[in-house]
Amino acid sequence: MSNTNRQVKLARRPAPGPLTRDVFTIEDGPIPEPGPGQFRVKIEYVSLDPAMRGWVNEGRSYIEPVPVGAVMRGYAAGYVEVSNHPEFKPGDAVQGLFGVQQYAVSDGKRVVKVDTNLAPLQRWVGGLGMPGWTAYFGLLEVGQPKPGETVVVSAAAGAVGSIVAQIAKLKGCRAVGIAGGPEKCRYLLDELGLDAAVDYKAGKLAADLKAACPHGIDVYFENVGGEILDTVLPLMNTFGRIPLCGLISAYNATTPPPGPRNLRCVLTQRLKIQGLIVFDWADRIDEAIHDLGQWYSEGKLKIREDVREGGLDAFPDVLNLLYTGGNHGKLVLKV
Protein backbone atom coordinates (compact mmCIF):
# COMPACT_ATOMS: atom_id res chain seq x y z
CA MET A 1 0.00 0.00 0.00
CA SER A 2 1.22 3.46 -0.90
CA ASN A 3 1.90 5.91 1.91
CA THR A 4 0.33 8.81 0.02
CA ASN A 5 -2.89 9.70 -1.72
CA ARG A 6 -2.29 10.88 -5.28
CA GLN A 7 -4.90 13.46 -6.28
CA VAL A 8 -5.86 15.55 -9.29
CA LYS A 9 -6.82 19.07 -8.19
CA LEU A 10 -8.21 22.04 -10.06
CA ALA A 11 -5.45 24.65 -10.27
CA ARG A 12 -7.40 27.44 -12.01
CA ARG A 13 -10.46 28.22 -14.06
CA PRO A 14 -9.86 27.27 -17.70
CA ALA A 15 -9.98 29.56 -20.68
CA PRO A 16 -12.45 28.68 -23.47
CA GLY A 17 -11.25 25.82 -25.63
CA PRO A 18 -9.63 22.47 -24.86
CA LEU A 19 -8.43 21.91 -21.30
CA THR A 20 -4.67 22.23 -20.90
CA ARG A 21 -2.58 20.34 -18.37
CA ASP A 22 -1.92 23.46 -16.31
CA VAL A 23 -5.63 23.66 -15.43
CA PHE A 24 -4.88 20.79 -13.04
CA THR A 25 -2.19 19.92 -10.53
CA ILE A 26 -1.29 16.39 -9.52
CA GLU A 27 -0.29 16.17 -5.90
CA ASP A 28 0.47 13.63 -3.20
CA GLY A 29 -1.38 14.11 0.07
CA PRO A 30 -1.91 12.01 3.18
CA ILE A 31 -4.13 8.95 3.02
CA PRO A 32 -7.39 9.94 4.74
CA GLU A 33 -8.58 8.09 7.82
CA PRO A 34 -12.32 7.42 8.17
CA GLY A 35 -14.11 8.84 11.19
CA PRO A 36 -17.20 7.46 12.92
CA GLY A 37 -19.80 6.30 10.39
CA GLN A 38 -17.34 6.56 7.52
CA PHE A 39 -15.24 4.22 5.37
CA ARG A 40 -12.21 4.53 3.10
CA VAL A 41 -12.22 3.40 -0.51
CA LYS A 42 -9.17 2.47 -2.57
CA ILE A 43 -10.10 3.64 -6.04
CA GLU A 44 -9.33 1.43 -9.02
CA TYR A 45 -11.14 3.21 -11.88
CA VAL A 46 -12.16 6.81 -12.53
CA SER A 47 -14.94 7.70 -14.94
CA LEU A 48 -14.17 10.43 -17.49
CA ASP A 49 -17.37 12.22 -18.46
CA PRO A 50 -18.21 15.15 -20.76
CA ALA A 51 -19.80 16.96 -17.81
CA MET A 52 -16.33 17.46 -16.32
CA ARG A 53 -15.74 20.31 -18.77
CA GLY A 54 -18.67 22.21 -17.29
CA TRP A 55 -17.83 21.32 -13.69
CA VAL A 56 -14.58 23.33 -13.83
CA ASN A 57 -16.24 26.48 -15.23
CA GLU A 58 -17.45 29.38 -13.14
CA GLY A 59 -21.11 30.25 -13.56
CA ARG A 60 -24.63 29.04 -12.99
CA SER A 61 -25.23 25.35 -13.58
CA TYR A 62 -27.07 22.40 -12.08
CA ILE A 63 -24.23 21.88 -9.59
CA GLU A 64 -21.67 24.16 -7.99
CA PRO A 65 -18.36 24.32 -9.88
CA VAL A 66 -15.37 22.46 -8.49
CA PRO A 67 -13.58 24.95 -6.21
CA VAL A 68 -10.09 25.98 -7.26
CA GLY A 69 -7.66 23.94 -5.17
CA ALA A 70 -10.13 21.10 -4.60
CA VAL A 71 -9.92 17.51 -5.78
CA MET A 72 -11.49 17.17 -9.23
CA ARG A 73 -15.04 15.85 -9.06
CA GLY A 74 -15.61 12.49 -10.66
CA TYR A 75 -17.37 9.17 -10.40
CA ALA A 76 -15.12 6.29 -9.47
CA ALA A 77 -15.21 2.66 -8.40
CA GLY A 78 -13.07 0.74 -5.96
CA TYR A 79 -12.99 -1.40 -2.85
CA VAL A 80 -13.63 -0.56 0.78
CA GLU A 81 -10.36 -0.83 2.74
CA VAL A 82 -11.29 0.34 6.23
CA SER A 83 -14.80 0.86 7.58
CA ASN A 84 -16.51 2.38 10.59
CA HIS A 85 -19.86 2.19 8.82
CA PRO A 86 -22.32 -0.60 9.68
CA GLU A 87 -23.49 -1.05 6.08
CA PHE A 88 -20.07 -1.22 4.41
CA LYS A 89 -17.36 -3.73 5.16
CA PRO A 90 -13.77 -4.16 3.92
CA GLY A 91 -13.73 -5.79 0.53
CA ASP A 92 -17.06 -4.37 -0.64
CA ALA A 93 -16.97 -3.15 -4.23
CA VAL A 94 -18.50 0.32 -4.43
CA GLN A 95 -19.19 3.13 -6.86
CA GLY A 96 -19.75 6.79 -6.08
CA LEU A 97 -18.73 10.39 -6.59
CA PHE A 98 -15.36 9.81 -4.93
CA GLY A 99 -13.28 12.26 -6.95
CA VAL A 100 -10.16 11.86 -9.07
CA GLN A 101 -7.78 10.42 -6.48
CA GLN A 102 -6.39 7.15 -5.15
CA TYR A 103 -8.26 7.08 -1.84
CA ALA A 104 -11.53 8.63 -0.69
CA VAL A 105 -13.49 8.73 2.55
CA SER A 106 -17.29 8.53 2.44
CA ASP A 107 -20.28 8.45 4.76
CA GLY A 108 -22.13 6.21 2.31
CA LYS A 109 -24.54 8.77 0.87
CA ARG A 110 -25.22 8.04 -2.82
CA VAL A 111 -22.66 5.24 -2.74
CA VAL A 112 -23.74 2.06 -4.50
CA LYS A 113 -22.50 -1.42 -3.70
CA VAL A 114 -21.81 -3.21 -6.97
CA ASP A 115 -21.75 -6.85 -7.96
CA THR A 116 -18.45 -7.75 -9.60
CA ASN A 117 -19.78 -11.26 -10.24
CA LEU A 118 -22.31 -9.75 -12.64
CA ALA A 119 -19.88 -7.35 -14.35
CA PRO A 120 -16.27 -6.21 -13.93
CA LEU A 121 -15.65 -3.21 -11.70
CA GLN A 122 -14.98 -0.75 -14.52
CA ARG A 123 -18.41 -1.46 -16.02
CA TRP A 124 -20.01 0.05 -12.91
CA VAL A 125 -18.75 3.52 -13.86
CA GLY A 126 -19.94 2.90 -17.42
CA GLY A 127 -23.07 1.30 -18.78
CA LEU A 128 -24.19 -0.03 -15.41
CA GLY A 129 -23.26 3.20 -13.63
CA MET A 130 -24.10 6.88 -14.05
CA PRO A 131 -24.06 6.90 -17.89
CA GLY A 132 -26.43 3.93 -17.94
CA TRP A 133 -28.75 5.54 -15.38
CA THR A 134 -28.77 8.73 -17.47
CA ALA A 135 -29.68 6.78 -20.58
CA TYR A 136 -32.39 4.83 -18.75
CA PHE A 137 -34.24 7.75 -17.22
CA GLY A 138 -33.56 10.18 -20.05
CA LEU A 139 -35.07 7.93 -22.68
CA LEU A 140 -37.87 6.29 -20.71
CA GLU A 141 -39.01 9.23 -18.58
CA VAL A 142 -38.34 12.17 -20.90
CA GLY A 143 -38.39 10.54 -24.34
CA GLN A 144 -41.25 8.16 -23.51
CA PRO A 145 -40.76 5.97 -26.60
CA LYS A 146 -43.62 3.83 -27.86
CA PRO A 147 -43.30 0.57 -29.80
CA GLY A 148 -42.96 1.23 -33.52
CA GLU A 149 -41.63 4.76 -33.12
CA THR A 150 -38.30 5.93 -34.52
CA VAL A 151 -35.66 6.92 -31.97
CA VAL A 152 -32.53 8.75 -33.14
CA VAL A 153 -29.50 9.04 -30.86
CA SER A 154 -26.51 11.32 -31.39
CA ALA A 155 -23.07 10.24 -30.10
CA ALA A 156 -24.61 6.78 -30.32
CA ALA A 157 -21.31 4.94 -29.88
CA GLY A 158 -20.60 6.79 -26.63
CA ALA A 159 -21.24 5.85 -23.03
CA VAL A 160 -24.79 7.21 -22.78
CA GLY A 161 -25.84 7.01 -26.41
CA SER A 162 -25.02 3.33 -26.84
CA ILE A 163 -27.25 2.42 -23.91
CA VAL A 164 -30.07 4.70 -25.09
CA ALA A 165 -30.06 3.08 -28.53
CA GLN A 166 -30.18 -0.43 -27.11
CA ILE A 167 -33.02 0.41 -24.71
CA ALA A 168 -34.94 1.85 -27.66
CA LYS A 169 -34.60 -1.50 -29.43
CA LEU A 170 -35.68 -3.36 -26.30
CA LYS A 171 -38.81 -1.18 -26.20
CA GLY A 172 -39.75 -2.10 -29.77
CA CYS A 173 -38.56 1.04 -31.53
CA ARG A 174 -36.60 1.63 -34.72
CA ALA A 175 -33.22 2.75 -33.42
CA VAL A 176 -30.99 4.99 -35.54
CA GLY A 177 -27.56 6.03 -34.30
CA ILE A 178 -25.45 8.99 -35.38
CA ALA A 179 -21.70 8.57 -34.90
CA GLY A 180 -18.41 9.79 -36.35
CA GLY A 181 -16.58 7.48 -38.75
CA PRO A 182 -17.18 4.08 -40.35
CA GLU A 183 -15.67 2.11 -37.44
CA LYS A 184 -18.14 3.49 -34.93
CA CYS A 185 -21.04 3.03 -37.35
CA ARG A 186 -20.09 -0.61 -37.93
CA TYR A 187 -20.09 -1.09 -34.16
CA LEU A 188 -23.62 0.29 -33.94
CA LEU A 189 -24.89 -2.06 -36.63
CA ASP A 190 -22.86 -5.22 -36.11
CA GLU A 191 -22.42 -5.23 -32.33
CA LEU A 192 -25.38 -3.29 -30.95
CA GLY A 193 -27.90 -4.34 -33.62
CA LEU A 194 -29.27 -0.90 -34.46
CA ASP A 195 -31.55 -0.54 -37.47
CA ALA A 196 -29.43 2.14 -39.11
CA ALA A 197 -26.27 4.16 -38.48
CA VAL A 198 -25.45 7.57 -39.92
CA ASP A 199 -21.86 8.81 -40.19
CA TYR A 200 -21.97 12.56 -39.65
CA LYS A 201 -18.40 12.84 -40.92
CA ALA A 202 -19.36 11.48 -44.36
CA GLY A 203 -20.62 14.89 -45.50
CA LYS A 204 -24.22 13.85 -46.28
CA LEU A 205 -25.81 14.11 -42.86
CA ALA A 206 -29.18 15.51 -43.95
CA ALA A 207 -29.68 13.06 -46.83
CA ASP A 208 -28.42 10.04 -44.92
CA LEU A 209 -30.50 10.81 -41.85
CA LYS A 210 -33.64 11.31 -43.92
CA ALA A 211 -33.05 7.96 -45.66
CA ALA A 212 -32.52 6.24 -42.29
CA CYS A 213 -35.80 7.69 -40.96
CA PRO A 214 -38.37 7.23 -43.75
CA HIS A 215 -41.25 7.80 -41.32
CA GLY A 216 -39.67 10.77 -39.55
CA ILE A 217 -38.29 10.95 -36.02
CA ASP A 218 -40.43 10.57 -32.90
CA VAL A 219 -37.71 10.77 -30.23
CA TYR A 220 -34.31 12.40 -30.62
CA PHE A 221 -31.89 11.84 -27.75
CA GLU A 222 -29.56 14.82 -27.90
CA ASN A 223 -25.94 14.52 -26.79
CA VAL A 224 -24.22 16.81 -29.29
CA GLY A 225 -26.11 19.93 -30.43
CA GLY A 226 -24.90 22.21 -33.20
CA GLU A 227 -25.31 21.11 -36.82
CA ILE A 228 -26.74 17.74 -35.86
CA LEU A 229 -29.60 19.29 -33.90
CA ASP A 230 -30.35 21.64 -36.79
CA THR A 231 -30.45 18.66 -39.16
CA VAL A 232 -32.75 16.63 -36.93
CA LEU A 233 -35.37 19.30 -36.16
CA PRO A 234 -37.05 19.41 -39.62
CA LEU A 235 -37.36 15.60 -39.56
CA MET A 236 -39.15 15.47 -36.21
CA ASN A 237 -42.72 14.23 -36.25
CA THR A 238 -45.55 16.20 -34.68
CA PHE A 239 -45.45 16.03 -30.89
CA GLY A 240 -41.96 14.53 -30.96
CA ARG A 241 -39.82 14.50 -27.84
CA ILE A 242 -36.19 15.61 -27.46
CA PRO A 243 -34.43 14.61 -24.23
CA LEU A 244 -31.49 17.01 -24.05
CA CYS A 245 -28.64 15.26 -22.26
CA GLY A 246 -25.59 17.06 -23.61
CA LEU A 247 -24.24 19.59 -26.11
CA ILE A 248 -20.70 18.30 -26.43
CA SER A 249 -20.05 19.98 -29.79
CA ALA A 250 -19.85 23.34 -27.97
CA TYR A 251 -18.05 22.37 -24.75
CA ASN A 252 -14.66 23.47 -26.03
CA ALA A 253 -15.91 26.38 -28.16
CA THR A 254 -13.73 29.49 -28.02
CA THR A 255 -16.65 31.74 -29.03
CA PRO A 256 -20.35 31.36 -28.19
CA PRO A 257 -21.88 28.93 -30.71
CA PRO A 258 -24.86 30.09 -32.79
CA GLY A 259 -28.32 29.08 -31.66
CA PRO A 260 -30.41 26.50 -33.53
CA ARG A 261 -31.35 27.77 -37.01
CA ASN A 262 -34.41 25.54 -37.21
CA LEU A 263 -35.95 26.42 -33.86
CA ARG A 264 -39.23 27.24 -35.64
CA CYS A 265 -39.75 23.48 -36.01
CA VAL A 266 -40.35 23.30 -32.26
CA LEU A 267 -43.39 25.51 -32.83
CA THR A 268 -44.73 24.03 -36.06
CA GLN A 269 -44.26 20.39 -35.01
CA ARG A 270 -45.21 21.12 -31.35
CA LEU A 271 -42.04 19.49 -30.08
CA LYS A 272 -41.08 18.99 -26.46
CA ILE A 273 -37.44 19.64 -25.53
CA GLN A 274 -36.46 18.87 -21.95
CA GLY A 275 -33.06 18.99 -20.33
CA LEU A 276 -32.14 16.18 -17.97
CA ILE A 277 -29.64 15.52 -15.22
CA VAL A 278 -29.37 12.07 -13.66
CA PHE A 279 -29.64 13.60 -10.16
CA ASP A 280 -33.31 14.28 -10.97
CA TRP A 281 -34.00 10.60 -10.35
CA ALA A 282 -31.64 10.11 -7.40
CA ASP A 283 -34.31 8.34 -5.38
CA ARG A 284 -34.95 5.84 -8.18
CA ILE A 285 -31.39 4.75 -9.03
CA ASP A 286 -32.07 1.24 -7.71
CA GLU A 287 -34.73 0.86 -10.40
CA ALA A 288 -32.23 1.63 -13.15
CA ILE A 289 -29.59 -0.65 -11.63
CA HIS A 290 -32.09 -3.51 -11.48
CA ASP A 291 -33.34 -3.21 -15.06
CA LEU A 292 -29.95 -2.51 -16.63
CA GLY A 293 -28.41 -5.38 -14.66
CA GLN A 294 -31.17 -7.75 -15.74
CA TRP A 295 -30.87 -6.83 -19.42
CA TYR A 296 -27.10 -7.18 -19.19
CA SER A 297 -27.26 -10.59 -17.47
CA GLU A 298 -29.69 -11.79 -20.16
CA GLY A 299 -27.31 -10.71 -22.93
CA LYS A 300 -29.70 -8.02 -24.18
CA LEU A 301 -27.41 -5.11 -23.34
CA LYS A 302 -23.86 -4.82 -24.67
CA ILE A 303 -21.41 -2.48 -22.97
CA ARG A 304 -17.93 -1.43 -24.03
CA GLU A 305 -15.33 0.51 -22.08
CA ASP A 306 -12.24 2.25 -23.39
CA VAL A 307 -9.92 1.78 -20.40
CA ARG A 308 -6.79 3.92 -20.52
CA GLU A 309 -3.58 3.29 -18.60
CA GLY A 310 -1.18 5.86 -17.18
CA GLY A 311 -2.75 6.43 -13.80
CA LEU A 312 -3.89 9.78 -12.47
CA ASP A 313 -0.97 11.59 -14.13
CA ALA A 314 -2.61 10.88 -17.49
CA PHE A 315 -5.97 12.39 -16.48
CA PRO A 316 -5.69 15.80 -18.24
CA ASP A 317 -4.69 14.27 -21.57
CA VAL A 318 -7.11 11.36 -21.50
CA LEU A 319 -10.02 13.64 -20.56
CA ASN A 320 -9.63 15.63 -23.77
CA LEU A 321 -10.26 12.51 -25.87
CA LEU A 322 -13.94 12.91 -25.00
CA TYR A 323 -14.18 16.19 -26.88
CA THR A 324 -12.34 15.04 -30.01
CA GLY A 325 -14.09 11.70 -30.44
CA GLY A 326 -10.87 9.85 -29.68
CA ASN A 327 -12.51 7.28 -27.41
CA HIS A 328 -14.31 4.10 -28.44
CA GLY A 329 -16.87 3.35 -25.77
CA LYS A 330 -17.07 4.58 -22.20
CA LEU A 331 -13.82 6.35 -21.34
CA VAL A 332 -12.33 5.07 -18.08
CA LEU A 333 -8.96 5.76 -16.46
CA LYS A 334 -7.27 2.95 -14.56
CA VAL A 335 -5.79 4.37 -11.36
Rank of each mutant, 00 (worst) to 15 (best):
V224A: 11
P243I: 01
E227K: 15
D199L: 05
P256K: 14
A207H: 00
G216M: 07
L229N: 07
N252F: 11
G203L: 14
G225L: 13
P234L: 01
I217K: 12
G225P: 15
G259D: 11
L205I: 00
F221Q: 10
Y200A: 03
G226T: 09
T255P: 05
G225T: 10
A212Y: 02
P258N: 02
C245M: 10
N252P: 13
E222M: 04
G203K: 13
G216I: 08
D218A: 08
E222W: 03
C245P: 07
G240W: 11
N252I: 13
G225I: 12
L235I: 11
P214F: 03
A207I: 00
L229K: 02
A202S: 14
T254C: 01
G216D: 07
E222P: 11
N223P: 05
T238Y: 15
G259L: 13
G259M: 09
L235G: 08
Y200V: 00
M236I: 08
V219E: 12
T238F: 15
D218G: 07
K204M: 03
H215V: 09
N223F: 05
H215A: 15
D199E: 02
S249Q: 05
G225S: 13
R241E: 12
A253V: 08
T231W: 04
G226N: 09
G240A: 11
F239K: 13
G246C: 05
Y200T: 01
T255V: 15
V232W: 04
D199R: 10
